[in-house]
Design a protein around this nucleic acid. Structure first.
Lengths: 198, 198
DNA sequence: CATCCTGGCTATGAGCATTAGCCAAGGCGT
DNA sequence: ACGCCTTGGCTAATGCTCATAGCCAGGATG
């Protein structure tokens, strides 16, 4: 037996790929072991449990989301940044539905939890988007949450019954961005250019 | 053995209660059988499989959501209706997180699927809310989806890491409603009364 | 060359969904 | 009132899963 050369990272990455193909519920140690050409108990040398595996996939996903967001927001601000952020999130979710699903339902243990840290990076990116809208500081957190709700909900609906949204998903998503943008402008007292409504 | 007097409905209701207590992932035939004072195979007399049970819980939940929405929207319109709808959804989600979670990820088979019908009722209620905002007809569907995304995302975040939102969840939710309301007013060309920003 | 850590394995057990097949309770027709 | 048959419970058994225990080879390290 030629020592297949696994380590925790390779196992987690393979698990993430499996999640994207089979859904997060389809991630089992048995399936993952088969994919890696290894017997199930072997995985316990790299991962503490199935739960631990899913948790690590969640960290991976959240970190990747943070990277994508940071890249997408380079040199943008205001409505531009908002659209870029939403679009980046959406692309990630569509490309990696299983990974993203792993993040929903994952909980962090403490303030030094890597998942918490990765999650904070994402939140900070969204905060940066909002900087251009002049949201009062004491409402920033609420607003960040509202945006997360939108994207999160979109992701979940996309995965669960997105198939029946037909071909106009892009249109729906663009519309959601418009709606959000106008809400943000309006709430900060700057309704934005009128007459741009089509 | 005194014929415990089960039927499909009682099993599904008990399953829904279990879902609210233990999460949708905690709904197993073994656990449900124990709760009903019955052995697991018995449940197959009332339900085709575990998947079928969860599906039926989803139908129950979607129907209940539809009822709550319909009740909440009696005699309301515009911003009032929007706030009432969001609030009703939220109350349901908080009171019955497991049931609601069953609806996310459930898929319908065809146009005569009871889940599809129940789901349509909900969509129609949201459509009624939007009637007061003057959204152009060809954008109605997109807007309905955007609202669903918000509520859906809120529900999921609430369940998954709501605990760390602290005590200001109500505030966040109200803020989300405000943001949505302003977006809707703005997009339909009616920015609404200014100076109401606190 | 001996030793030890690493990373694979087999064997095993517990819990789950699911199926097959049995059997009693009670309603219903005669 | 009697017998039948449907209904709704059961036990037994299968096969899947995660998970643990303990063995064993290979390579690095002294």
């Amino acid at each position: 037996m030629p020592k297949a050369g696994l380590n925790t990272e390779r196992v987690v990455v393979a698990g993430a790929e499996l999640a994207d193909e089979a859904g997060i519920a389809g991630v089992s140690l048995a399936a993952l072991a088969a994919r890696l050409g290894v017997k199930p108990p072997t995985l316990y040398k790299h991962v503490a449990s199935l739960q631990d595996l899913r948790y690590r996939i969640a960290i991976l996903a959240m970190t990747e989301v943070g990277d994508q967001l940071r890249d997408a927001l380079q040199g943008r601000s205001g409505s531009d940044a908002l659209a870029a952020a939403f679009t980046a999130m959406r692309h990630y979710i569509v490309a990696h539905p299983g990974r993203y699903a792993a993040t929903t339902g994952a909980r962090f243990a403490g303030p030094d939890d890597p998942l918490f840290i990765a999650s904070n990076r994402v939140v900070n990116s969204i905060r940066a988007v909002l900087a251009g809208y002049g949201i009062p500081g004491d409402r920033l957190d609420h607003t960040v949450r509202a945006l997360r709700c939108s994207v999160h909900g979109f992701a979940l609906l996309q995965v669960s019954d997105g198939f029946q949204w037909g071909n106009d998903q892009d249109e729906s998503f663009d519309w959601m961005i418009r709606l959000t943008d106008l809400g943000l402008r309006s709430i900060s007292g700057r309704p934005g250019p009128a007459g741009r409504q089509d």
